[in-house]
């Protein structure tokens, strides 16, 4: 009697565990570092460096970010506007903040992110527009630098 040998097909399975481990690690890494605040940190703005520029200890209560690029385009709330439009937008913001029972206008901070090559006069115009709308607290934003910025130009 002839016995037929049963042919055993073995499925070769690679060990997927290390790959899945690494993939989850990568996802966790990117999730922690991801920054969705695109509107408030436009990449076109190259901030001036300063060794004293430190992030605020506590988050601002009512932050408003006004940005200006090197070609002096003003960015506010994701829109490219000119100084007259900015005045109107700031007045609207001030009216809305005043409408709160506790008048949040006095807690508002205008964060100014201006490019290092923009003209100072244009930054002053932004500050003046904010003052006219009733804002009086400003944060001039700079890029943190580990090297001293005073000894060279």
């Amino acid at each position: 009697m002839r016995l037929t040998k049963a042919k055993r097909h073995e499925i070769t399975e690679g060990d997927m565990t290390p790959m899945i481990d690494m993939t989850f690690q990568l996802i966790a890494f990117f999730m922690v570092l991801i920054n969705f605040s695109d509107v408030e940190q436009d990449q076109r703005v190259n901030l001036p460096a300063s060794e004293l520029a430190k992030p605020p200890d506590t988050a601002y209560d009512e932050p408003l970010t006004v940005q200006m690029t090197a070609d002096e385009t003003i960015l506010f709330g994701g829109d490219e506007i000119d100084i007259d439009q900015l005045r109107g937008r700031l007045r609207t913001e001030a009216t809305l903040l005043r409408a709160y029972k506790d008048n949040r206008l006095k807690d508002a901070t205008v964060v100014i992110r201006a490019d290092l090559r923009s003209r100072t006069g244009r930054v002053q115009e932004i500050i003046e527009a904010c003052q006219e709308a009733g804002f009086d607290t400003f944060a001039l934003r700079g890029r943190q630098s580990d090297v001293p910025t005073l000894t060279s130009e």
């Binding site: 570092l33 430190k54 605020p56 607290t137 400003f138 944060a139």
Partner: peptide
């Protein structure tokens, strides 16, 4: 993973000078 890689961008640390100018 692809989503996070595509939307990832390096943001340099920033800091503020606080001034009060009424």
């Amino acid at each position: 993973l692809v989503f996070f890689i595509m939307s990832f961008k390096i943001v340099l640390p920033e800091g503020d000078f606080n001034i009060r100018m009424p």
